[in-house]
Amino acid sequence: MKNSAIGVVGEPGTPPGLGARMLKTRLSISRNARELTAENGFAGFTVEELCARVGISRRTFFNYFATKLDAVFGHAEDGLPAEALERFMNARPVGTVGISPTLLADLVALVREQLRIDDAEIRGVHGFFTILHREPELLARMMKVGPERQAEFTAMVARREGVEADHSGIGMLAHALQFATHRAIERYLASPDGPSLEEEFLSVMHQTRELFGQPLLHGDPPAT
């Protein structure tokens, strides 16, 4: 999805072994690191300046992240909300054989939950992605982390469905969701007084579903 390169934006549940206060601090460090990057460029601020903005000591910073670059990209487990993930994994209908008939709807519900965040957070992250492509160090990390996290997400979906992690249909679906999220955020930011972010996302997904519901071969019946 939108932040497969840095972890999905949103308020995740508390990872095992990490207290709510510590999680809040870790999220704040990453959020402010991205905002400072968007404002000043990656080389335009120091760890000390980041710490001052968050309200922590340098020592505390290094309890959470080894480097400034690590802080910018955050922890993978700080992405998808834990409670939402649990609901998604448990939503597969009992007794289903093969790909479940609710998979797409369950995934759309998961993404919509991620998108229920405030406008300021979305705008800050979007600014980060805008500058990311001009920063070689950031781009290099994204090229490594992005595919890894996308693969983790795809493997999670495949695990729920009881298929191999390299299932082509699951991979295609994950990429479609990522594209739809990217496009929705672009539209939302371009028209802040227009439809909500969720509505923009659903609009893109409806357009996608309309095309993929067409017959694959001439003479085939429409997909149901």
Rank of each mutant, 00 (worst) to 15 (best):
A43C: 09
F62V: 06
F61R: 02
Q178K: 10
P192C: 09
R59N: 12
S203Q: 14
A43T: 15
R209L: 15
D78N: 09
E86T: 12
A184R: 02
V8S: 10
A120N: 04
A120C: 00
V97R: 12
L115P: 07
S191D: 15
Q150S: 12
P101K: 02
G7L: 00
V72S: 01
M172F: 15
Y64D: 06
C51E: 00
S196E: 03
G171P: 06
F65Y: 15
L173G: 03
N90W: 01
V108G: 03
G17P: 08
T181S: 15
P101W: 04
F153L: 01
R53Q: 12
I99D: 07
T208C: 05
H126Y: 13
A52V: 11
I29M: 00
Q114E: 10
Q214I: 03
G169E: 11
G74P: 04
R134Q: 11
D193I: 13
H133L: 05
P81N: 06
A71Y: 05
A174Y: 01
F61L: 08
S30M: 09
A71P: 02
P147S: 03
A105V: 06
G95E: 13
A52N: 07
T14V: 12
V125R: 12
T130Y: 06
L202A: 08
D118E: 14
S30V: 10
R87N: 01
R59E: 05
K2C: 07
E49R: 06
I122C: 09
L211M: 10
H133W: 09
G79Y: 00
K144L: 15
A33F: 05
G219Y: 10
L139C: 14
F129G: 01
D78A: 13
R123G: 08
T67M: 04
P16W: 02
V8F: 05
N90L: 11
G55E: 02
T224D: 03
P195E: 07
G124K: 04
E137Q: 14
R58C: 00
S30I: 04
A109W: 04
V54E: 05
A52I: 02
F88G: 03
T14I: 13
R123Y: 06
V9H: 02
A5S: 04
N63E: 07
A180P: 03
G194K: 09
R21N: 09
N40L: 09
F179H: 11
G219Q: 10
F129W: 08
R160M: 08
R112V: 11
D220P: 08
